[in-house]
Design a protein around this nucleic acid. Structure first.
Ligand code: FES
Ligand code: FES
Lengths: 148, 148
DNA sequence: CAAATATACTATTAAATTAGTAGGAATTAA
DNA sequence: TTAATTCCTACTAATTTAATAGTATATTTG
């Protein structure tokens, strides 16, 4: 399961993506309101995303946050990882949060690891080809579909 | 990420699968020892698996636990679910642990949900076709491969 | 039947993670 | 200079996960 933090991050970035125009900042409070995210929590999340280079910011009055890349270049897998969420089901197959399995004698010959590796590949395949722009596209398609 | 509980469950069931012979019980303490699982914790896990119908048990001296089905019939997806682990990345796409997304206005038109749904399908496809017997087979293949 | 050896069950406790908050410093526009 | 905004550090609260304790109940065996 993704943490709330990760879900909030995705939602916040989607808001930025929807009004994307290079370097044009949007305020935390506005994002918090439209996405129903606790203001202070969102502040911390955006700060983290900034330190990861996913968003940029401008301080002071009329300041705020903006995407540091085009919405088509920001992938779901990147967002999940940047907010501390491992994608793999077990630490022994995680690229970015690797940890060896204490109880398993030998990783190389672990049958469970072998399966879980396959699941990770399948998940990453989808998550790393889906950008913020793609999510918005999907949304529009769904809206059309349900309006009929 | 799978919980330790889930990983312990899988490991324990693999031990039972490796010595599978209908109704032949193996003791908790033996499993705990070979898989390095805290004894009392494993006791609780096996009890839960029994209540889910995945294993059977016999009380008293010479008692213990045994698989209630053939190792080929016990799927990874079933074990994960039985130990409380949702497979989906978000509760709104979980079959067995469904919960609506508080902040999302409309599930039907949510683009994020749409992606996450796809990830779930991909994961379940693998997990629900992989049985305990399959894991053991994979293990043997890997052992062969690395022995050469 | 009694002793030994298992699981069954209930109730806690401990540890770790996640979620959220508080408050002031620094920065910028007007 | 003032108002609006992000930056940053340090907490606190809530929830979930991991693990333990202790007693009851069942079964085998001498
Ligand atoms: S090595 Fe990670 S599950 Fe065995
Ligand atoms: S409905 Fe679950 S993410 Fe939007």
């Amino acid at each position: 399961m993704l943490q709330k933090k990760t879900k909030y991050a995705i939602k916040a970035l989607l808001t930025l993506a929807k009004e994307y125009k290079e370097q044009k900042p949007i305020q935390i409070s506005k994002i918090a309101e439209t996405e129903k995210i606790p203001r202070k929590f969102l502040e911390a999340i955006l700060l983290e995303l900034r330190n990861q280079g996913i968003v940029g910011s401008r301080m002071g009055a009329t300041g705020g946050y903006y995407l540091s890349k085009h919405p088509e270049e920001i992938m779901l897998s990147t967002i999940i990882r940047s907010t501390g969420g491992p994608i793999a089901l077990l630490p022994c197959v995680s690229l970015n949060f690797y940890e060896s399995c204490a109880e398993c004698v030998n990783e190389e010959t672990c049958g469970l690891r072998d399966v879980v590796l396959e699941v990770r590949e399948a998940s990453i395949k989808i998550l790393s080809k889906t950008s913020l722009a793609d999510i918005i596209k999907r949304e529009n398609k769904l809206i059309k579909k349900f309006k009929v």
